[in-house]
Design a binder for these strands. Structure first.
Lengths: 241, 241
DNA sequence: CGGCTTATGTGACCGGTGTAAACAATGTGA
DNA sequence: TCACATTGTTTACACCGGTCACATAAGCCG
């Protein structure tokens, strides 16, 4: 069942070339069909803003019989599940990247993380839909998704801890803070992924990019030790009307 | 090339008819099949936490041929679309009910509305998934959904206006406030509907019912004119740890 | 009443989809 | 070299959404 994940760095291209040899007789295709399947499935998911493809389409796109998929995945859900895990990994990577670009200030890092959450859903709506808005049947998948999700949350939790150490935001269970801070961005992402961008974002902000930064500021402010005054907060909230 | 070798082996359709033969008309069923279809479809959706049924299953559950559905709906999306609209109507009704139960104070009403948003997703996850987490193809459906959604938002916007008049919360575009206030509850609902209840809610709160009230308080507080102090806010946020 | 139109349900069928089973070609280790 | 596990193919099945020709009930009009 568990296959050794040998790292044949890229023989895919080579084996694909083999088919170029004359009329690609019955010679076989991939040594690593699995990688190619995932890759293509991810591409289709990205193109269509969601895991909207059939196994047959996927297989024929790679010039392979549709049942070949079952040599590498138990069923379609297993494929989707692996893709989902890669989505969480991608998301975590995006978070880390955003954090490291934000400079040394813990509060700036925290804001960058919140903004990156939104940006991820904007940049990869297919991933987001796959990860959160689609229904994987098996409870196994669900638990795996949960663990990966908390893995992605880990970065956020650490950032919150740093902000507490630097006395930027209030003390208290960082996990709880992280879960709450993520709700509003997640809600917005859910709207976006389902094709419904809240009107005030679409109209009154210049774009989703700005909106991400704006939301990060607004969302975190209530937890700052040195909060804005009510007036200043309102001014921030209603900026660029 | 096997187009049609044997096709039979499904004659369950007559069973229900013969069973009701004694008291009901033998041949015909419903003058209003449409209502029965929607009703059953909603029941299945509620039972399965999402619109997970086939037209054939739906039809046979009512003892009719699956093509009968097409006498009342153009296609499956049309059925789902009508169900979606009923979902928004149900949600708006729940909002109004919650508001009227909250007493006369505008701020209490606003809190009740925010809590009711979450409670709706908890009570009717099938509806919620249908309304927000499923992908209706047609842009028509999407626009109808938007308008109905803003219809549901209308109640919230009015409540916000009332709170501004009563000097409970800050001035500013009520629509924008409404859209933002709804994000965190919606994010939580999206988590819930996708089977992922944030850990801190499941563990540290007594239940989702309490969590709804808690979230309404926490979410609105930043916009109060008489905000809590940072300490008091933190105390509220980390209540019942 | 009889005949017409219209609304509604039926069955046969099409292309497509996920999945299982038997089979065949490949590569690898003994 | 040869058995054998790996991997892709062929065939087949049950199910799905959707179309079409057809049957039949309901209503309407003379």
């Amino acid at each position: 069942m568990s296959k050794d994940m040998q790292k044949g760095s890229d023989h895919v291209a080579a084996s694909q070339r083999s088919s170029k040899k004359t009329e690609d007789r019955k010679t076989y295709h991939y040594a690593q069909l699995k990688e190619a399947l995932i890759e293509t499935a991810l591409r289709l998911t990205a193109e269509r803003d969601g895991p909207v493809f059939s196994l047959r389409e996927l297989a024929t796109a790679l010039g392979v019989s549709h049942t070949a998929v079952y040599r590498h995945f138990a069923d379609k859900d297993a494929l989707l599940e692996e893709m989902t895990q890669m989505g969480f990994a991608e998301m975590a990577a995006a978070q880390v990247a955003a954090q490291s670009k934000a400079g040394p200030a813990p509060l700036m890092q925290l804001r960058a993380l919140c903004a990156a959450y939104i940006r991820f859903a904007v940049d990869y709506p297919g991933y987001f839909t796959l990860m959160f808005n689609s229904r994987l049947g098996s409870p196994v998948a669900s638990s795996a998704r949960d663990s990966h999700n908390s893995g992605a949350l880990k970065v956020l939790i650490d950032a919150i801890r740093a902000c507490q150490v630097s006395k930027d935001i209030v003390d208290g269970d960082p996990e709880r803070l992280a879960a709450y801070l993520v709700l509003a961005p997640h809600g917005m992402c859910s709207y976006i992924a389902s094709g419904h961008i809240p009107g005030f974002i679409a109209r009154q902000q210049e774009g989703l990019n700005d909106a991400a930064d704006w939301m990060a500021q607004v969302g975190i402010d209530p937890f700052l030790i040195q909060r804005r005054s009510p007036d200043a907060f309102a001014q921030l909230f209603f900026s660029n009307d």
